[in-house]
Design a protein around this nucleic acid. Structure first.
Lengths: 301, 301
DNA sequence: TAGAACCGTAAGTTTTGCTAATGCTAGCTG
DNA sequence: CAGCTAGCATTAGCAAAACTTACGGTTCTA
């Protein structure tokens, strides 16, 4: 019955509402905001008065957003994007690359791409403070959208769709072949192996949930066989060790395998080869920040 | 030397900066914000710290915006537009027409259009609180853009350009002919007068600065004569009185003349007649608010 | 049936933001 | 050219806003 007054909507409170929408509960939002649930609850009450409408249907077990709240959250996203654009304007005008940049990356790119880039940046751009978090693509993307990351390095395998929101800005970092990893002598010499040649071999693989594991399994099936998986692990290092120990062969992205690993040979697949693409994602609103551009350049070798 | 930190830009402070940009001085902004200059000055200092850059070059005589400040102001406009869209969302979802609406209108439409509409609304939509301000089109438009008005009723005369920013939403309220106002007996009976017939008459006119005065003067010149202006006034009522008192003839918008005025006759001009268009302008971000739609409907008779 | 997780309200404390008072500089004016 | 006005910044004090702590209630789960 509250009159829908013309009270101005406070942006801070709106971002709190957005955080609630994102986390699903007031308590969750409070955690990521670094506040007590009580504070968030109070501010949301004020926001409801400002809006003149109920925004949350509160139950003892979490809260539910009303339609009005959903609309406000959508508008809030726009506002936050504009604010980030404003920040980018400032950076661009001052040409400053100073500041913090939070990167999320897939494990295989962490060692081969991100770490060298970080070393280079530490020398050439000491004013940049990098924070690197290893995470799977879908988690990185969520964190990027939520504003918990500034840049996400993700990988895309042929035939394994990764849902990238189209308001994210993409840069292709690398297209790399998948290679066969095996013990010396297992593969026929001097010829690029095909998947079919490995139909009778034992396999070492990432789990089917991982994009890499899924892509290889699909490719094997398309080649006409079901791989006999003997070892399954997410850890690339462990995976190559398993090959070295004789537990089977593996097909992995080139970057995931350390060249200097003993007791294994690395051989590219015969054409048509499988490949994965490494992408760097940023929010469109921060894509033109100098700091982002600089880090991207460093990642691009 | 302040590090361009990643501090979040506060929207309230950004709107203060925008107000300074609009008014040209901190003191001016403080007046329209209902604050003391000190408060504004302090908040702008904080904003500069948040932005990591100088935003104002302060001199004893007013302030000058830096490029960074101009960029921030532009972004702030976007944010305010989004906030207004959010408000419109809420209104639409609740279907509520409650609230305040501030109208600016040209004088001639005030009596003939806005006043009747206000009366009707008072009966059918008592929950709407109207505030009507009579002002010239250019002033109304400025106030509309600045957010001091919600709806502007302006007039556009043929050949007199009125610069309407294209992000304003336009609704045509009325297209009306200009009519000749004269004492009885001055005009030839039964025939629509042309301007040229009035070449030798004395004229009563709005000043040349007013759009109406300008339009009529231009039309007279195009008809081949320079009108002999005997009376000049902005006040439409006084203007018609001057005609009644025998000081000359006038050419005015139909709505500007009270039908029941004694001692004058009103006659439409022969074709091609002059005309003016009455437009209702709103910010695009508030155009779909139910309250705006309702008031527009009332204005449209 | 106890515990955990969630929400809201009330009271107390800290932080923020505003005003009032004061001093400064630059332009205008008689 | 002295004096007036308009503008801006800084300081100290105060009031309002926002957060924390403490507590009570509800629902799902072990």
């Amino acid at each position: 019955m509250a009159s829908a007054g013309g009270l101005p909507l406070d942006v801070v409170r709106l971002t709190m509402l957005r955080e609630v929408a994102l986390r699903g509960s007031i308590a969750g939002a409070a955690r990521t905001l670094g506040l007590t649930p009580s504070a968030v609850s109070q501010q949301l009450s004020v926001l409801e008065r400002e809006a003149g409408t109920a925004l949350l249907s509160r139950s003892a077990r979490g809260v539910q957003l009303t339609g009005a709240a959903a609309a406000l959250v959508a508008r809030t996203e726009s506002i936050l994007a504009v604010l980030e654009h404003a920040r980018a304007d400032l950076d661009r005008l001052s040409g400053s690359t100073a500041g913090q940049l939070r990167i999320g990356t897939v494990a295989s790119a962490a060692a081969a791409l991100v770490s060298p880039a970080a070393s280079r940046l530490a020398i050439e751009h000491a004013e940049i403070r990098l924070t690197v978090t290893v995470a799977e693509p879908s988690r990185s993307i969520d964190a990027l959208v939520a504003g918990d990351l500034d840049l996400a390095v993700v990988d895309v395998y042929d035939g394994v769709p990764v849902p990238v929101p189209d308001y994210l800005h993409q840069t292709e970092l690398r297209v790399e072949p998948l290679v066969v990893v095996a013990r010396p002598g297992v593969l026929a010499p001097r010829r690029r192996p095909t998947l079919l040649m490995l139909a009778e071999a034992d396999w070492v693989m990432p789990p089917a949930e991982a994009a890499c594991g899924q892509a290889v399994r699909v490719a094997c099936r398309e080649a006409g066989f079901e791989p006999r998986v003997r070892w399954e692990t997410d850890d690339m290092l462990l995976l190559v060790r398993a090959v070295a120990a004789g537990h089977g062969v593996a097909v992995l992205p080139r970057l995931a395998v350390d060249d200097r690993m003993a007791d294994v040979v690395i051989r590219p697949l015969a054409r048509p080869a499988m490949q994965r693409r490494l992408l760097a994602l940023t929010r469109a609103s921060s894509a033109d920040r100098p700091i982002v551009q600089t880090v991207l350049a460093a990642l691009n070798f």
